[in-house]
Amino acid sequence: MNECKEILQELAAYYYRELSGTESARVEAHLETCKDCWQELNLIKKTLNGADAFNPEIAAALASVDWDTLPDKIADRVLIHNEENVPRSWSRFWSSLFRPQFRPVYAALLLGIAMGAVLTFFVLRSPQEIQLAADGIFVPAGVMESMDVEVARRKTLDYLEKSQYLLLEFLQAEPDRAADFWRSDFAAQETRGLLSQKRYIDSQLNKYQMAKAKAICDQIEFLFLELTQLSQEISEAELERVRNLIQERQLFLKINIIRQELERSEV
């Protein structure tokens, strides 16, 4: 019975001659010995012959169409309709972009973008670049230091120049008005400015080991401190002595030498 079941499944294929030689021979061998399967084949044959009754209608339907002119009609409708209504070149352009043969190109592009992103990430992560991003400009450490030295040099020169003018004013003042000079607002304002400027250049002169400039600046500072603090009580004789001291010690000459040195060492 199992064989009958198998053969029944094959009967339609047998009718349509779709079985291989071996399969066909097996079915035929079974049919020769099995009345039920033979009758089943007979029924299938009758049914499918009945299906053939539909053929004349199909043949008439086929004959009712003018096949010679149909391709032209369809071409008119399809091609003209599409040219009018579909932006054909664009639709074809977009569909051509996604053709399978372009896949390697897209893959390479994606890979390139990914690699670029990774490299950018690592480069941006380096400390030097972070510094750059924070400051907005990139300046090497050596240049920064030389700029610093240059600023200290100029500040010192400025300090020395202003001090020289102030001391010159003092020296050129009439002996009886020397005390008044140090009590004047001009002298007080100038010395205050110079003393605060000295505080800034002190740190710079120490840092860059400008010893000679530091020594002369200290002397000037000391002198100004003394003169401003004692100007209320100081006598004219004492002021005269200070003036002589400035001249004796050739303070102006020393200041000039240091200024020249500083000017020569311009960065």
């Binding site: 047998y14 009718y15 349509y16 001659r17 035929e28 049919l31 020769e32 010995t33 099995c34 009345k35 033979w38 084949l41 007979n42 044959k45 499918l48 012959n49 053939d52 053929n55 004349p56 199909i58 043949a59 086929l62 004959a63």
Partner: peptide
């Protein structure tokens, strides 16, 4: 002996099975 059931068919087994095919094949 197995009986050979061919009675009722005036064509050999294979011919009987493979019925004549549709005329549409001549039309199309």
């Amino acid at each position: 002996m197995k009986t050979k059931y061919t009675a009722g068919f005036d064509k050999p087994v294979e011919e009987a099975a493979h019925g004549s095919h549709v005329n549409t094949s001549q039309v199309i």
